[in-house]
């Protein structure tokens, strides 16, 4: 296990260096944000999955994808250009920075409970199922 942790540490260190390096590359804003967020997401996943003891298995990916996709679709519907970009505040009119700001901010804030709940539900239900199989006592089924 120790080697895994050290390997993850090395990966995190490298990713930190990469993300700093990328910030000096003068990318356009959307690309810069995308790169930064992606690298941060990878680092977060490494910490969650290895340090916080949750390992990848085949079905996890599928389940998480389904949950995330479902909520992403809902969010996408909400921030469709026609609906979302048209306004969250009327100061600047179409396309003003404030509108984009609110739209992205709301998207971030709404995605959090969705992802959290999906992840919790998945892991808890999986644990309950595993426990029931171990005890083989039908009266403690979920």
């Amino acid at each position: 296990m120790r080697n895994v942790y050290l390997a993850v540490f090395a990966a995190l260190a490298v990713l930190t260096a990469v993300t700093v390096g990328a910030s000096y590359m003068h990318l356009a804003r959307p690309q810069a944000i995308a790169v930064g967020v992606c690298i941060a997401a990878v680092k977060v996943s490494l910490i969650v999955f290895f340090f916080m003891h949750m390992k990848f298995e085949g079905r996890i990916i599928r389940w998480l994808m389904v949950a995330a996709l479902f909520f992403a679709l809902i969010l996408l519907f909400f921030i469709l250009p026609d609906l979302g970009w048209s306004c969250a505040v009327c100061f600047g009119g179409e396309g003003s920075p404030m509108i984009q700001g609110f739209t992205w901010g709301i998207a971030v804030l709404l995605s959090l409970p969705a992802l959290l709940f999906g992840a919790f539900a998945f892991f808890i239900i999986r644990s309950i199922r595993r426990k029931n199989e171990l005890t083989r006592d039908h009266s403690t089924a979920i």
Binding site: V89, P97, I99, Q100, G101, W104, G105, I106, V108, L109
Partner: peptide
């Protein structure tokens, strides 16, 4: 932290 970060996103993107 999400509440703070989304506020940051809103104002950083939107504030003049």
């Amino acid at each position: 932290f999400g509440g703070f970060i989304s506020s940051y996103v809103i104002l950083r993107t939107g504030s003049t």
